[in-house]
Simulated scan of single mutants.
Amino acid sequence: MPVKKRKLPEAENHETKCKITRPQIRGVKPISEVKQFSSKKCLAWFHKYADPDKVVGPEAMEKFCKDLGVEPENIIMLVLAWHLNAATMGYFTKEEWLRGMTGLQCDCTEGLQSKLDYLHSELSDSTIFKNIYRYAFDFTRDKNQRGLDMDTAKSMLALLLGKRWPLFPVFHQFLEQSKYKGMNKDQWYNVLEFSRTINTDLSNYDEDGAWPVLLDEFVEWQKARPASLRHHNSKKENEGEKQKPET
């Protein structure tokens, strides 16, 4: 999860607009086999990283990730932020921390480390992944902007779809040369739907469908490319997908 060092809004409402239902934690051991969750211990764990404003900011987040043994850019950090329902990338408030860690029943670094495999497994659930994908839009955008700037959009799409959508490298090329400077919420949501429903050769794309213009233009751009280049890229992408492990 790329960390942006920007000022946390003083009067920001930390509840995101994306309403999501989180599943119950699976694979939990019987109470007799695990230590009881401690809110007091969880709060002390938060204060280990929090600044005087009771917020875990970008620099402390780096230390938190290091202690956890996870790179800040790892998609697991986005999944964790989703569980905390964090409002702003690079920041965890006390309320977000306590709410999310209580749900995960984690009150220390070791406890959260034991849940990393579980957090990763959630990405394989199509419904949960969709919720995380949608959550990422509001989580990563600048709060004074309605959409994502294109650099942020490309980075987050690479994190979320780079190893799940064979056409992503081509779509990334399209965004690189396009006139678009950003991506709005409708475009963001539809990119995921497009990646899930449209064939790699675009054979089932309906030009009269209710897709955003951005995706219409992507299809036109891809079809206008030399056939040899399209087929070469498609073959390369499919081979890459077989070789790449899930992140």
Rank of each mutant, 00 (worst) to 15 (best):
L192D: 09
V79C: 14
F139W: 09
K181Y: 07
E96P: 06
Q145S: 06
L192G: 12
D201Q: 08
E110W: 01
L159D: 15
M101Q: 12
L84D: 12
F137T: 00
Y189V: 11
Q113C: 06
T197N: 08
F168N: 01
F174W: 04
K181S: 15
I76W: 04
C65E: 00
D117P: 02
Q105A: 13
I76P: 13
D125S: 08
A81V: 11
P166F: 07
L160D: 08
A81I: 10
D149N: 13
D107G: 04
N85I: 02
H83V: 08
G90K: 00
D117H: 06
Q145F: 11
R196V: 03
L123I: 11
D125M: 07
L78Y: 01
S155P: 00
L116K: 05
G57A: 13
D142E: 10
M89E: 14
K66E: 08
Y135G: 03
I128A: 03
G57S: 05
L98S: 08
L78H: 14
K143E: 10
L202E: 08
D201C: 09
V56M: 09
E95N: 13
R164G: 07
G182M: 05
E59V: 14
R164M: 08
L123C: 06
D201G: 15
Y189P: 02
L119Y: 09
L202M: 12
I75S: 03
F171S: 07
G69K: 06
L104G: 00
V79S: 10
L157S: 09
T88E: 14
Q177V: 14
W165A: 06
F92R: 07
G57N: 13
I198L: 15
N199H: 15
F174L: 11
R99C: 00
D201Y: 06
H172L: 13
L119S: 01
G111M: 02
I198R: 09
E176I: 00
V70D: 02
N85L: 14
R99N: 13
P72T: 02
L175W: 00
L68I: 11
R196W: 02
Y135W: 01
A153K: 06
G111H: 04
F137Q: 07
L123P: 12
N144V: 10
R196A: 05
M183D: 04
Y189A: 03
Q105K: 15
K179T: 10
R134E: 09
Y118N: 09
P169E: 13
A81N: 15
K181T: 10
E176C: 11
D151L: 03
T127E: 09
G69A: 11
T93I: 01
T197E: 09
F168S: 01
Q113T: 02
D117Q: 15
D151N: 00
P58M: 02
R146E: 05
V70P: 13
F139D: 09
L68V: 04
R196P: 03
T102K: 08
F139C: 06
L104M: 02
